[in-house]
């Protein structure tokens, strides 16, 4: 079962994990991305491409379901403005055993960074700046090809 959500509302971790546990899996793996509190960043703004974003995330979740023996895959990405310490993204996988769940969870967050149309803008005391992609993200995503 796949759940994909792109929403300005805060991510409810307990609700998402409970839904994965209800799949009857032996193992749940999760990753939560949080707005950094370093570098003087006061807020983060996430822009996305409505329609394409949801389709790209569904395609990633389906690829993970095919590649590993998963009982569930969840991708929840927040959009809009959020402040330091708030959750940006949640990825969760449910499988019979830990290895499938852990590997699929890593795969999803690695590929999400390069394969879904989101753009981050950091707000600092002096103004705003668009975040540049990191070469290490592209390498991590390419590792799964």
């Amino acid at each position: 079962m796949i759940r994909v959500s792109v929403d300005p509302a805060p991510i409810e971790l307990g609700v998402e994990v409970a839904a994965l546990e209800a799949r009857g899996a032996g193992g749940i793996a999760t990753f939560t991305g949080v707005v950094r509190t370093d570098d003087g960043v006061e807020a983060l703004e996430l822009e996305h491409y409505p329609g394409m974003t949801e389709a790209a995330l569904c395609a990633l979740a389906e690829a993970a379901m095919d590649r590993w023996n998963l009982l569930g895959a969840t991708i929840v990405h927040r959009v809009g403005r959020m402040t330091a310490g708030e959750r940006i993204v949640f990825v969760g996988t449910a499988a019979a055993h830990r290895r499938e769940a852990l590997e699929a969870c890593t795969y999803l967050i690695d590929r999400l960074k390069t394969d879904a149309p989101f753009w981050k803008r950091e707000w600092l005391a002096g103004g705003a700046r668009w975040v540049e992609p990191r070469a290490t993200d592209a390498q991590a995503a390419a590792h799964w090809l």
């Binding site: 394409m52 993204v89 879904a116 753009w119």
Partner: peptide
């Protein structure tokens, strides 16, 4: 057709 900078989600 959409034009944009390299993506930076996650």
């Amino acid at each position: 057709v959409a034009l944009f900078p390299p993506v930076t989600g996650g």
